[in-house]
Nucleic acid binder design. Structure first.
Lengths: 268, 268
DNA sequence: CGTCAAATGCGCAAAATCGAGCAGAAACAC
DNA sequence: GTGTTTCTGCTCGATTTTGCGCATTTGACG
């Protein structure tokens, strides 16, 4: 007990995991950390800090440079699923509620492995006899826990930690086996010139397959995603049938989307 | 020894369950606990704390690390499945721990959608480069949350509420695509005359496919299942390669299993 | 291009922690 | 009472983490 208090008095001579967590926080707020600074602050030797940063580098969280390390700007795909789910939660819920109105009884719908799509099932309680096709293990189990009156088909495949969904050739083939009334999907960015883009090559292929195999492709797109560009093309605006968002888009966007024949749904 | 008496004088030398409850509270509020910190706070030896944390790890509540333990964020996925999981929990853990010893690095193993099989992944932390093939959505996501160093393949298919796993023809075909080193499965009942039996027609077909496509079929069978009969045959005893149970079977059973060429694994 | 202080990676030894096994104490069953 | 089980603390060899020395690399400065 005394020992611990003493340590606290001296500052935190933290150990192992907790120290690395501290470094993570520093990185989050400051983007850059320096070996000496951390060593001093944490009362450990620079060697230890170097080792820690080495671990974080292996994880892909930072890039080392001479004297310290810099936070790697992560595509949001690599932020843990449950953190991502909290981001813009209000927006996702607004979108999900509006999107749910598109669904009618007895339909077959598909959902991709995104946090936005994962918000949708909560609003499907009053639909009867749905079939839900999804690439997301998380969404599949969520539907069970919600006691949805629906049949759930999950593609299977290799499980991805970041999306908590499945990827790979098997997954794509499974999607291709179903033609759906509605396909709900999201992505990281939407710009007029570059269309819908996202970071993960494999996930993009799955979205494309979903879009190809549906009567009505519905893009769930919160306001933060407009006029952004990621790098891998999902599809152009013209290939959409419908876009659901949480705020009224600008007049310019509305005009563009209308001219492209995209039905736009937003609150009020 | 003096130390202990002193401790008694100072107050809380908490014992057993009460101590573990305290650790639970600490975990809830702080997310991370340290062996030494707890030992001092609770006036017991570090050994005891290690044992306690070991128990909590088996329960799946924490993940141990050098010097302490961290609360496992088990963010959703619960309840109806969980109640069944509590039954014979101790037996399942004993079986899982023994079964895990059968697994070697770099192997491909399959797990069916049973609660007994679901206990296994917790004991696979020290194996490297595993591939896990499962029909269970629950197990797949559990493996993620455990941060297992393994690739997870999930068959997909139509989701069953009772097993939280997949069934159907698609599922069977997916299993058939992989040949595994080990197949771990469980079932309702095991009798000498009628072999392994279970209730659900569809699930039985999947188990059979798993058994057909493996080098070593391992039946996870707690003591309550011996000399029981359900109705749908999975396979006869002779088709097993190995049986793992939580208590020494009767001499008669041991003799039978030996004569059938089944390796029998039980504690001690 | 050369110099030099600072930072780095590597190996090693000290320290801390771990798990397994053993033995004593307390609780319990009979 | 006797035997059994459970819990706890301790010992010991093994593992992990940490700090330091040392040769090497880096990058700023002249």
């Amino acid at each position: 007990m005394r020992k611990i208090e003493q340590k606290h008095a001296e500052g935190e001579s933290i150990m192992g995991l907790e120290r690395i967590d501290f470094i993570r926080e520093q990185l989050k707020s400051k983007k850059v950390v320096y070996v000496n600074q951390l060593a001093e602050k944490l009362f450990v030797s620079p060697s230890t800090i170097r080792r820690d940063l080495g671990h974080l580098e292996k994880e892909g969280l930072v890039r080392r440079f001479y004297g310290g390390a810099k936070l790697m700007e992560h595509p949001s795909n690599e932020i843990p699923f449950f953190t991502r789910k909290e981001e813009n939660l209000a927006a996702k819920e607004i979108i999900a509620e509006l999107a749910a109105d598109l669904v009618a009884d007895n339909q077959v719908i598909s959902l991709d492995a995104t946090t936005t799509a994962a918000t949708l099932p909560r609003f499907l309680h009053n639909k009867e006899n749905l079939k839900i096709i999804t690439t997301s293990a998380q969404i599949a189990l969520d539907c069970l826990d919600l006691l949805l009156p629906a049949r759930i088909f999950c593609t299977g495949g290799w499980l991805s930690a970041t999306s908590r969904g499945f990827t790979g050739e098997t997954t794509r083939m499974r999607i291709a086996e179903y033609y759906t009334d509605l396909a709900f999907f999201s992505a990281r960015a939407f710009s007029w010139e570059n269309g819908i883009t996202d970071v993960n090559e494999e996930d993009v292929c799955l979205k494309q397959e979903m879009i190809r195999r549906t009567r009505k492709a519905v893009f769930l797109c919160d306001h933060t995603k407009f006029d952004q560009i990621s790098y891998r093309l999902v599809c152009g605006a013209a290939e959409l049938d419908c876009l659901v968002t949480d705020r009224r888009p600008s007049d310019e966007w509305l005009k563009r989307l209308e001219s492209a024949g995209v039905e736009v749904i937003f609150p009020e």
